[in-house]
Simulated assay, not measured.
Amino acid sequence: MTHWHLSSIDWLDSLPDAARQQLHLQTATLDFRDGQTIFAPMPEPDAVFILVQGLVRIYRLSSEGTEFTLGYVKPAEVFGELAAYDSQPRESFARAIDNCIVLKVPVLLFRDLMQTLPSLCYSVTKQIQGRFKRIERRAEDLVFRSVTARLAATLLMLMEDFGDDRGGHSYIRLHLTQAEFATLVGAARPTINQTFHQFRTAGLAIFEKGHVVILNPAGLRKIAESPLIPPTN
């Protein structure tokens, strides 16, 4: 592994020299092409992963084989990190949705470093906290909000993380199919297609050939923050 991989990630570059040397000696650098699986469910995970370059999708499969996207990993973020906290089986999949460079850290090394370095533990815990807050918010949306509101909220989330401002509009730099949006939102693909058509007609967002352009973030936010659907008894 070359040194620039560590120095390109702030929270790793700030580690003591001894810890950086351990990572340098024991961490593998892996390349994945778009669409390749980085990890799959396993009974005893043996590694934690850090994304250096690219984008990674984390998802699970239902008992019927339906995919549900939990979220996306950006460069400098850790994933598969729960293996460092306990010995429970890994239940999620991680798939490259762009050409990726990934650091594979032995779980025992990562666990030891977290136990001895409060700064590393804090950085990882902060990332986990942010990820779980998003999952919690999406779970609430699945129960209490309409598909239209959920898709609007998803587009705003993707704009925040992956949006590029071009001429007053925000281009989401992810190539996503409507089927993938369906796994993010928790809806059928035809419903996603219909909702995107409504957004286009209303001048809110455009979906075309796997790319999304956000035209009116304020309008999407108004839809995303629409009143919750009251639970039925």
Rank of each mutant, 00 (worst) to 15 (best):
R95L: 11
E81H: 09
G210D: 08
A153Y: 00
G186K: 02
A202N: 08
A187Q: 06
Q129G: 10
I135R: 12
H197K: 11
R90P: 00
T116V: 12
R200K: 14
L184V: 07
K126D: 07
S146E: 01
E180I: 08
S87A: 15
E77H: 15
T195N: 02
D112H: 12
L155C: 13
D112E: 13
V107G: 01
I206P: 00
G186W: 01
R131H: 08
T183N: 11
H211E: 07
T125M: 10
F196L: 04
G186T: 03
R134E: 12
R137E: 13
E208Y: 12
V143M: 15
T148Y: 03
I97M: 10
A205N: 07
V105A: 03
F93A: 10
Q178T: 10
L117H: 13
E180V: 09
A139T: 12
D164P: 03
L204T: 05
K209M: 05
V147G: 04
A84N: 03
T183E: 13
G130C: 06
P89T: 05
K126S: 10
R131D: 01
A202H: 09
L108N: 08
V124K: 03
L184I: 07
S170V: 14
L184D: 10
F162S: 10
R95V: 14
F93E: 06
R138T: 11
G163W: 07
P106G: 13
T148P: 03
R111D: 04
F207K: 00
S92Q: 09
A76P: 02
E77G: 03
Q115P: 00
R189L: 02
I128G: 00
A149D: 03
L156T: 11
L184S: 09
D161T: 11
E91R: 14
H175T: 14
L204Q: 06
S87F: 07
A179V: 08
M157Y: 15
L155D: 09
L176C: 04
S119W: 10
Y122M: 07
P106I: 14
R166W: 10
M114N: 08
F79N: 08
R90L: 08
H211D: 05
N193Q: 11
L113T: 02
F110R: 01
R145N: 15
K133C: 10
Y122K: 13
I101G: 04
T195R: 04
E81A: 15
S123V: 04
G186Q: 03
L113M: 03
R150G: 02
L176H: 07
